[in-house]
């Protein structure tokens, strides 16, 4: 069973090796890369291609490691005790299982996505070391250890907002999704738009890469933005001649908002246009 990308997802050979190594040796895979290069999507595609269920845990700045394991709802239990509910005698009714627990107790191997781990508190990854290493944790309320029946395929994404601790990194495989070069990008576009005119893609990609080549841009457009933009171009019924004769100093980029997400970059583009730099 090997991951080789899917109909909707083009994985570089490098990435395939990384995923397969993580799957075979049952260690977590840490994915970093520019926003919009398909980090989160990878987990879903791996699940799809290996035909496995997926559990997701989207980390927020307020997330605690404990929440991924389980939460004990003491208030609900107190309330039930007031109402004389029979349920109250069994504490396990008040344990809300988190995604990690659910993935651990699944009867078959699953994919577990821990999304944007760098969003959380600086200590967050350290609190998950044992869970990721041994794939088990201790539930104090039930006084038993929860061990993974089948070690899940864990995919962790990070946007590089903060450095992760070494001890954590040591337990993971690591892959940095670099920005796709033109050939791979063409493949990606073809996967998304199988029926689009070849020439339109070529022109659009030329414009896209020339925008990416502009230095000092705050937020360079990424793959997902190119896809969105192409979709808009297609819906808007623009043809090649519109793109070919494009000159920023005179006309605006069609559907600019899909590519440029920052007002300073819009300004920058305008200024460059005034210097009559063509795409």
């Amino acid at each position: 069973m090997k991951f080789t990308g899917t109909d909707n997802y083009v994985a570089s050979p490098d990435l395939q090796i990384a995923v397969n190594a993580a799957v075979t040796l049952q260690k977590p895979l840490l994915i970093k890369g520019e926003p919009g290069t398909g980090k989160t999507l990878l987990a879903f595609e791996v699940a799809k291609s290996l035909n496995k269920k997926i559990y997701t845990w989207h980390v927020k700045s307020t997330s605690k490691a404990q929440q991924g394991l389980y939460e004990y709802d003491a208030v609900a239990r107190l309330r039930d005790s007031q109402l004389g509910d029979e349920k109250v005698k069994d504490i396990s009714h008040y344990i809300n299982k988190g995604p990690v627990w659910q993935a651990f107790e699944s009867d078959e191997q699953v994919v577990l996505l821990i999304d944007e781990i760098d969003k959380a508190d600086i200590e967050f990854p350290n609190d998950l070391l044992l869970e990721l290493d041994k794939m088990e944790f201790y539930c104090y309320e039930l006084q038993r250890t929860i061990t993974a029946k089948h070690r899940p395929i864990i995919i962790i994404t990070s946007n590089n907002e903060r450095d992760l601790p070494d001890a954590f990194l040591r337990r993971c495989f690591f892959h940095f999704i670099s920005f796709p070069d033109r050939d791979i990008m063409k493949e990606i576009v073809n996967v998304h738009f199988p029926h689009i005119e070849e020439k339109l893609i070529a022109e659009a990609m030329r414009v896209f890469y020339s925008i990416r080549d502009i230095n000092n841009m705050k937020k360079k457009p990424s793959t997902s933005e190119l896809i969105d933009w192409l979709r808009l171009l297609q819906i808007g019924g623009l043809n090649i001649s519109d793109l070919k004769n494009l000159n920023v100093s005179k006309s605006k980029l069609p559907y600019e908002g899909a590519l440029i997400k920052n007002e300073q970059d819009v300004e920058l583009l305008k200024r460059m246009g005034n210097k009559s730099i063509q795409y």
């Binding site: 050979p13 397969n20 990194l169 892959h175």
Partner: peptide, 20 residues
């Protein structure tokens, strides 16, 4: 895992050893 290809071995080394 790397099979016979040195390219694959290179990728494998990278994903296991390099974390940044």
């Amino acid at each position: 895992l790397p099979g016979l290809s040195v390219d694959n071995f290179y990728s494998l080394c990278k994903t296991t050893l390099i974390k940044n």
